[in-house]
Write a protein that binds this DNA or RNA. Sequence first.
DNA 1: TAACTAATAACAAACGATTATCATAAATGA
DNA 2: TCATTTATGATAATCGTTTGTTATTAGTTA
Lengths: 331, 331
Amino acid sequence: MATLKDVAKEAGLTTSTVSRILNNRGYISDNARQKVDVAMKKLNYQPNEVARSLHRKSTNTIGLIVPHIRHPYFSEMISNLEDQAYDKGYRILLCNSQSIQEKETEYINICTGNQVAGIILCSGTVSMELFEGIGIPVITMERFLGNGTASVECDNKQGGALAAQKLISCGCKNLLHVGNIGTITMPADQRTEGFREACEKNNIPFVELLTEEGQYNSMAYGELIAEALRKYPETDGLFANSDVIAAQTLQVCRKMGIVVPEHMKIIGFDDVNIASLTTPQLTTIHQPVKEMAEIAVNLLHDSIAGKMVARRTVLPVRLVERETTGFSAGF
Amino acid sequence: MATLKDVAKEAGLTTSTVSRILNNRGYISDNARQKVDVAMKKLNYQPNEVARSLHRKSTNTIGLIVPHIRHPYFSEMISNLEDQAYDKGYRILLCNSQSIQEKETEYINICTGNQVAGIILCSGTVSMELFEGIGIPVITMERFLGNGTASVECDNKQGGALAAQKLISCGCKNLLHVGNIGTITMPADQRTEGFREACEKNNIPFVELLTEEGQYNSMAYGELIAEALRKYPETDGLFANSDVIAAQTLQVCRKMGIVVPEHMKIIGFDDVNIASLTTPQLTTIHQPVKEMAEIAVNLLHDSIAGKMVARRTVLPVRLVERETTGFSAGF
DNA sequence: TAACTAATAACAAACGATTATCATAAATGA
DNA sequence: TCATTTATGATAATCGTTTGTTATTAGTTA
């Protein structure tokens, strides 16, 4: 790898001059600029970002901590975040915590050790102490740390309410809600809150089904749901906290001979790809993932620049009606 | 951020000694080790990886270039690669090229500029000149560059053959194959080869449908497939080059009143999550993604260590029978 | 011609860690 | 006691870049 020094020698200039040209500061003649251009091309010169970073004491890398990559909600989110980050000149250091505390802790250390400019945290299981006095801007997605860190969320409560209202207006009398991991508190719990309030207001009973971390990690909810449907056979409406859960519910229903939407209405959450690939297609609560990603990166960018930044940003969700709550217009 | 110097001062030692302790070389007393330990904890010291990297002239980062993140095959692959890389002490610099030449080129420069230890390339659209004389080990997945770069592939040809044999043994007489992007050559083209050979051997006619880059990027194949099915109404067996395409085909069939598997058998490729979330569930060709990821990281690891490495590794695939080629055992 | 600007050279410090060399000193052992 | 081993200090170079200082030159302008 050619260095600045090599380029300088090749161009017959000093490193100071070449560096000035690269960074556009001070006096520069067109002549010198051209000579450097030629030399750079000839030597296939590529500035060493590591050296640059060392000097300026920070990188243009964002540490992105997620609990999963294969889960469609997260791959969607990661994709959007990468897009936004790239546009702003940031790179992504991909940290998959797999919801494992140890791995999360180590990844946080890796982030600080590698002098990332900031961290975007999508992970739900972190204990916030890990971020105390970390000295790096942190933006959380769907996770409120409460230690001064800015968060971006969708309006989970509204989502829960919309789901309940829809199911109720479809005539469902006995609802089941497949919720979050029981042992961990996160903004997504608000979905249950919104759901509960709407149910209570309408005097409709509902059962809340807590999930386990293992299920979250393996994305295997089939058994859990089948059991619940056996235990609560009167269920005629189900609200799942993700489209993955909802899609698996469809499979369970089919195996049990429960016809959707005739015998059972289903609403998912997220509105990811699979929502329109199941049969029937999923009615779901749409999360504005793209906007959330954009806002997150913007917040981080401002935060890195030392600007003051909104503590909490909540974006609206909307109900997308497909087929699991009734016949679609298309048929 | 505390530096080595700070730790040394705090521990009442010199930087040489502390560095020796950190790197376990030379003579070290338990006493000193303890003092350093205490000082590190107290100052919350984290070695500056950037400085380390500069000194040793390489990082422990792998540049991972993919054309997509949201596509389930790639999110699956990325997830497995991260897992393997983490175990070997590598970090992932996530580069989403979106199949855009420009972005790919810039990301390659970013990788070299950031002194990555190696690159794993999953992207299909790169022109290999970009990797000429890059001076960094490169492993390609499902992409044979032919410039000395090692590649990891699944046995695409076998996959195509398996699909054709299955469809034919199911009694299909008129096959449709939704293939790759017409304008780009890649190992996955071999699926078509294997499919063709098996069809010819059995004297079964088939139509090959080429896809476009735009469709690949947006994952929207619905229109293309609907048109093809209108044009070739006699089709009774379809082999798609990905589960995403197959899943969309299911939706198209439903809209067109074509009953799967009775009127039409479908086989996908990849065996990702959605394959078991559609109705009926997809029969598909399983790619050993985990093993491919493991091998890729191992190859890169060896390559970085200067070892000689297999030019081409081809892993077997297998047919996973679900419901789109007949009634599943479960019913 | 003096005073200026523009362009570059020459040199060195700094970023934070590693590492090498040499020196020093205590502990150990024969 | 002398030689050896063990442990550390002191100092400096290095990685590649940025940046600051001072000096030097050529050209411009008043």
